[in-house]
């Protein structure tokens, strides 16, 4: 029986090594691999939209409006005869661009505010926590509508709104970690050398709190993509004629009686992007949490 293969061994061999890097572990799960594939495709589309798109996404061709899929226009044209495929490619650029810039801003602001709240004087902590709590008490969409009403719709406003509503999440996460690290030996050791608060925060606390932020960001991206699409659908986000998945969806909604292609074409990328980023984020989170290693990744 020595040649018999124990199926358990096979299964064990297929599992990633427990000490493999968190990234490798995350991507070894089917969910993580699927998420990464979709995210990679969207990123490539966004980066190389200019090369990959068969047409200018803004070129109006009224003669061929609302056409179904054809050899010339693979997934048809919209109500102004613009090539839907090209608009989806460029829409990826808008969706990712808005998400990355706004989340990047929120991360930086949340990082600094959270560090100051966690390490700084207590009264400042009180003020910042009050700010975080009040921000998250506001319904996101209502706050977005209010700011857009004041500042007027546009990509800049959109980014500002998303960054503002995302700050509390990052700020709280950083603050909680900072509070935990504040009394740790190495921070007290730095203080014993007379390191000032700026040095302690920037050199010693900051590198130790960014890790979880990245996971939070990867899980925030789908939310932001949906928010951007939702506001653009309502005409409050990216201004036409710039292509956004939300505005493609809106055009499709108006043309629903004559063609369903456009609605599907606008909706499918949204669904896929949301799923892809969510799966990737969850796989990353599970991979970075050593306690979940053994359990497998659902």
């Amino acid at each position: 029986m020595s040649s018999a293969i124990d199926p358990r061994q096979l299964a064990a061999g297929a599992e990633p090594r427990p000490n493999a890097g968190p990234l490798r572990r995350a991507l070894a799960s089917p969910m993580g691999a699927f998420g990464l594939t979709i995210v990679a495709i969207i990123v490539i589309l966004a980066l190389f939209a200019g090369l990959l798109a068969p047409y200018d996404p803004l070129k109006i061709d009224v003669v061929h409006k609302l056409e179904g899929p054809s050899a010339a226009h693979w997934i048809g044209t919209d109500n102004l005869g613009r090539d839907t495929l090209s608009r989806i490619f460029y829409g990826a650029r808008v969706a990712l661009g808005v998400a990355c810039v706004s989340i990047g801003l929120a991360m930086i602001a949340g990082l600094l505010l959270g560090l100051v709240a966690g390490y700084g004087p207590r009264w400042l902590d009180g003020i910042l926590v009050l700010f975080f709590d009040s921000m998250s008490a506001l319904p996101m969409i209502m706050f977005a509508l209010a700011v857009i009403t004041v500042l007027g719709p546009g990509t800049g406003t959109l980014i500002l709104v998303i960054a503002l509503v995302s700050i509390p999440g990052y700020g709280r996460l950083v603050r909680a970690q900072t509070l935990g690290l504040k009394r740790s030996d190495f921070i007290v050791a730095e203080r014993s050398l007379d390191a000032g608060p700026a040095r302690i925060i920037l050199v010693h606390l900051l590198p130790n709190v960014v890790g979880p932020l990245i996971i939070l960001a990867s899980m925030d991206i789908p939310v932001v993509i949906m928010l951007e699409a939702g506001l653009s659908f309502l005409g409050l986000g990216v201004r036409p004629p710039t292509p956004s998945w939300g505005s493609i969806l809106y055009d499709g909604y108006n043309a629903l009686r004559s063609s369903t292609t456009l609605v599907i074409a606008g909706g499918l990328p949204l669904v896929l992007a949301t799923l892809g980023f969510t799966f990737l984020g969850e796989a990353l989170r599970d991979g970075l949490d050593p306690k979940l290693q053994r359990r497998g990744l659902r």
Binding site: F186, A189, V203, H204
Partner: peptide, 16 residues
């Protein structure tokens, strides 16, 4: 005046 801490590893900033 300098201090040496009880836990030698934990008293060194981990990312430096």
């Amino acid at each position: 005046a300098a201090m040496m801490f009880q836990d030698p590893v934990a008293s060194l900033s981990p990312r430096r």
